[in-house]
Design a binder for these strands. Structure first.
Lengths: 206, 206
DNA sequence: AATATTGGAGAGTACAACTATCCAATCATG
DNA sequence: CATGATTGGATAGTTGTACTCTCCAATATT
């Protein structure tokens, strides 16, 4: 399949596919001559993945590249690979404050939840930033609510991890892509559940 | 408080505060003369809220303005106000496909969850887009997983709604800002729970 | 009176994500 | 095998966002 067929199949302009090639989001096709290369199903699936990440997941092209690179060549350690993938995901967290206790809110939250606290993990900074934002906005999160959210998250994580494929490469792909791709689903479901609860509680005036 | 004091207090350049004024994110101060206006705590809190929305929540300035306008002058109906607020939040959903059944995946999901299905609600399009993205990326979401995520979301929503303030204006603020501000918290907690579960399951090699 | 600051408006900047144009080297087709 | 279309590759241009800078006349401050 040539580039124009690939682009047509994916529903994208050729120029955009070339752009992704330049940016390293898409592997080059196998060159068949100086001015021709051929692409296959692999490239098509990758393109769809790129659009999923830059679209609903909301990643920038740079962030998508980081995530894809980790899926392509994961480290030997799933924990640190997951850590780096999460670091590539938005939002950016708060930068470390004091050298002694850089993320006090996040640390307190995780200790209350009985979870490991690793200040190196990008999501810790993200949590700190999110908690600080809620405070700053005048809607602080109570410890009770945090406990509720945390245990819900733990339940979902346990469910996800139970279904992780055994083979290491597949496990990385499942974990990294699952983290990124399922987030918008969870958010949409939460918004819809709020709507549903509002309807049931207030009745709908339309 | 003059504009420079306000900016200093919020930790922002004066130029940025002026920009927010121009964009209608911040109400003008009360003019004390042709070249002077004074600002108060209200403006400072608003500025912090703007930074929370454009920062950790990840809204664009346009989106933040839409959300803030709804908080400032909510409609008479909480349901539709919430709907419009959710419509202002990223990600953008899929645009309606067929006239008969525009969001088939989302409709099926909500019916399976026993929730109301209202194709007008922006989060329905967001859910459709998120489910389609997972499919396209080669990691479709099983009905079972959807049920799990959905019931977790329903639990959280019930918890949140129980704590909604009775007064209408406060209820809108709580619901709209709570939806937006607590999402990054939930996402960070989910990522951390994945990390925690991974550590417990695999042990950490460091 | 001299100096600094303000509000307001407009222009300028920096970056991201495409999109368009060129060009010489193939390819496909009659 | 002539001829028009397509390709990969590079470079430049476009659009949109979020600031940031510069001016300026009218106050404030000292």
């Amino acid at each position: 399949m040539r580039i124009s067929a690939l682009a047509a199949e994916a529903g994208l302009p050729v120029a955009t596919v070339k752009y992704y090639l330049r940016e390293g989001l898409l592997q080059p096709g196998t060159a068949t001559s100086a001015t021709q290369a051929s692409y296959d199903e692999h490239h098509l699936r990758r393109l769809r993945l790129v659009r999923a990440l830059t679209g609903p997941v909301g990643l920038s092209v740079q962030q998508a590249r980081s995530v894809l690179q980790l899926v392509d060549e994961p480290g030997d350690d799933l924990y640190s690979t997951l850590g780096r993938a999460v670091g590539a995901l938005p939002p950016d967290g708060a930068e470390p404050a004091g050298a002694d206790d850089p993320y006090p809110r996040a640390r307190a939250a995780l200790e209350a939840l009985g979870q490991v606290y690793d200040p190196e993990f990008a999501a810790v900074a993200q949590l700190e930033g999110a908690l600080a934002a809620a405070d700053d906005a005048g809607m602080p999160i109570t410890p009770e609510r945090l406990a509720r959210y945390g245990s819900a998250a733990a339940d979902l994580a346990a469910y996800d991890l139970e279904r992780m494929p055994p083979e290491p490469h597949a496990a990385v792909e499942y974990t990294v892509l699952g983290t990124a791709l399922y987030e918008p689903v969870l958010l949409a479901l939460r918004r819809l559940a709020h709507q549903d609860a509002a309807v049931r509680r207030l009745g709908r005036e339309a």
